[in-house]
């Protein structure tokens, strides 16, 4: 469970150009469900996701995580309840690495290295044996039908292939939550539907999925358990289809 309570995020606080990207947002994301954050550009979707994904701290409000396996980082039960709002960076990084898998709009793959290395990259600091890691990455690449490109450089792949590499990378540490920011922005309709089919697989595997998108193929998908609509940093509606 991810519980967002009255969360706000402001930039340039105290200056003339202060900007409130997220304003007093509250919502709950249930485990194993697909939640869509819907809204136009600048509505605060990405900012809210970065706060939930431990990439940034809110200016006010609380975010509580439970049942995502991050408790062991604090010597507690894996599914224990943790409030992440005021944690130091080291702990936020630990949660981000173990509990969240990120799929970025621009894929954010590292150019010049192989597909296989890109997939393994998030797990390098965890100290997992390189051979084990390699096998895990190859299995993921086979799952997404891109194992033949394992030794290729990412710059040579098509948009759809790059996204599948990004998805494989997001799964390398076996996270319980997948966060995707505008994942279909650079895909045509066929590839967008293929992406949603992959999301269905994640749901079946019991993973919690959070997607920010203004693509109807995503937010109108029957897979969505909850669509949260945002505008100007605030919540318009939170409803279960």
């Amino acid at each position: 469970m991810i519980e967002v309570i009255e969360v706000s995020k402001s930039f340039n606080v105290g200056k003339v150009n202060q900007f409130d990207a997220v304003s007093r947002v509250s919502c709950r994301i249930a485990p194993g469900e697909l939640t869509i954050l819907k809204g136009p550009s600048g509505s605060g979707k990405t900012t809210l996701m970065t706060l939930i994904g431990c990439m940034a701290r809110p200016s006010s409000g609380r975010i509580v995580l439970s049942g995502i396996g991050a408790g062991s980082l604090f010597g507690q039960q894996p599914d224990a309840e943790i409030e992440i709002t005021s944690l130091p960076e080291r702990f936020l990084t630990g949660i981000r690495r173990s509990a969240f898998g990120f799929i970025f709009q621009q894929f954010n793959l590292v150019r010049g290295i192989s597909v296989l290395e890109n997939v393994m990259l998030p797990a390098y600091p965890t100290g997992v044996n390189h051979k084990v890691l390699r096998e895990r990455a190859l299995t993921l690449l086979e799952t997404f039908n891109i194992a033949r490109h394992a030794s290729s450089q990412v710059g040579l792949l098509s948009g759809g292939e790059m996204q599948r590499v990004a998805i494989a990378r997001a799964l390398i540490n076996d996270p319980s939550v997948i966060i995707a920011d505008e994942p279909t922005a650079h895909l045509d309709s066929r590839l967008s539907r293929e992406f949603m089919a992959l999301i269905e697989g994640f749901k079946s595997a019991g993973k919690t999925v959070l997607i920010a998108s203004h693509d109807p193929i995503v937010f109108d998908s029957p897979l969505a358990d909850q669509v949260i609509e945002m505008r100007d940093g605030a919540l318009i509606d939170g409803s279960r289809p």
């Binding site: 080291r90 990084t93 969240f100 990120f102 954010n108 600091p125």
Partner: peptide, 14 residues
């Protein structure tokens, strides 16, 4: 690249 590494779970020390 440093930004990407941090976003996918690398600490500053890493």
């Amino acid at each position: 690249e440093i930004g990407i590494l941090k976003s996918i779970g690398w600490e500053t020390t890493d």
